[in-house]
């Protein structure tokens, strides 16, 4: 074995809590590592022994079948053992229950906790009180770092770069952790971000973060390289400040007519699951510009990279 070059490691974090705390180099390192993991999913033996003997617990205090499955498969492809922790909990005892639960789980000897929680800051709180790795799988309206990483990965894969691209995020930006995380990640990698939605859902206050905010979707279409359509949460549509479904579709829905005004190589993204016919017309969702299924596939490689890197950082600590 030759003595390799021992440069300073780029990744030293045992937790992944928010995309906002990552440097450009750290984000690129995760994306590069994920490229290496893509190949694993194409083999007949879809498994590597990197996390053999490690235990990953999936703590989902909020329903999310896809994200949970993606993390579970990612952990299993690294040969880790996975345990599910599912609990519906009352909103009054959140903080207390979470820590108590986490300490109990930790006492059973787990290495990585993947946490989805309705309260913003829950993952951070957990990381401060447990000694194992914590990966944030979405906390309230705050952050969803692996979604941002897989979106960046997909953009880089399709466009060859992120820097300098015009990217629109369309929909209920104000209440979306996906929007917040994507926005920070895109900015860190040098994309130009435009937020689109009615002023109640895409408020001008976001301009302080250095982005353009507009409610005129049609006008910005021709400039965009990437358009990320946020999922409309139907349960929120009855809330005040939300336009009617018909009005929303008319102003902010992506359909084949609007697609004609876009660049011929525009990339249409969606974090899933799609409300077909509301934010995204079915023919666009299934069309050649859409990267929806590719995002799901890439999510697996990105989550493998995140679990692997956090565990490695913890191991040398």
């Amino acid at each position: 074995m030759t003595a390799g070059t021992r440069t300073k490691p780029v990744w030293t974090r045992k937790h992944l809590l928010a995309i906002a705390e990552l440097s450009r180099e750290e984000i690129v390192h995760v994306l590069d590592t994920a490229v290496g993991f893509q190949e694993v999913s194409t083999r007949s033996v879809k498994k590597v022994p990197a996390l053999r003997g490690r235990v990953v617990v999936l703590m989902f205090f909020e329903e999310s079948t896809r994200t949970r499955m993606s993390f579970e498969l990612a952990a299993q492809r690294l040969s880790a053992d996975t345990v599910d922790f599912v609990e519906k909990m009352s909103s009054t005892s959140k903080g207390e229950t979470l820590l108590d639960t986490a300490r109990n789980i930790e006492a059973m000897g787990v290495d990585i906790m993947v946490l989805r929680h309705p309260a913003a800051g829950a993952a951070q709180h957990l990381a401060e009180h447990v000694s194992c790795c914590v990966v944030n799988a979405g906390d309230g309206q705050h952050a969803h770092p692996t979604q941002a990483l897989l979106d960046l990965f997909t953009i880089r894969e399709r466009k060859g770069r992120v820097e300098g691209l015009n990217v629109a995020i369309v929909g209920d930006v104000a209440h979306s952790r996906v929007a917040r995380s994507d926005l920070r990640g895109l900015q860190t990698l040098g994309a130009k971000v435009t937020l689109v939605g009615p002023p109640t859902l895409a408020p001008k206050s976001f301009e302080t973060m250095g982005v353009r905010v507009t409610s005129d979707f049609e006008r910005i279409l021709p400039e965009m390289d990437v358009i990320n359509m946020l999922r409309i949460q139907k349960e929120r549509m009855t809330a005040s400040g939300f336009p009617s479904v018909r009005e929303y579709i008319r102003l902010f829905g992506m359909n084949s007519d609007r697609l004609k005004h876009c660049k011929p190589d525009v990339l249409i993204m969606h974090p899933g699951p799609v409300n077909r016919g509301i934010e995204l017309a079915a023919d666009v969702a299934d069309g050649p510009h859409s990267s929806i299924l590719r995002q799901v596939t890439n999510g697996l490689a990105v989550r493998m990279a995140v679990l692997f890197l956090c565990q490695q950082a913890a191991a040398v600590e």
Partner: peptide
């Protein structure tokens, strides 16, 4: 790329840069 198969992963840690098998 044998990074994911090494038995010394915990000692070389994040120095292991995964480049992928081709």
């Amino acid at each position: 790329d044998i990074t994911l198969y090494r038995d010394d992963l915990t000692t070389i840690g994040p120095n292991a840069v995964l480049r992928g098998t081709e």
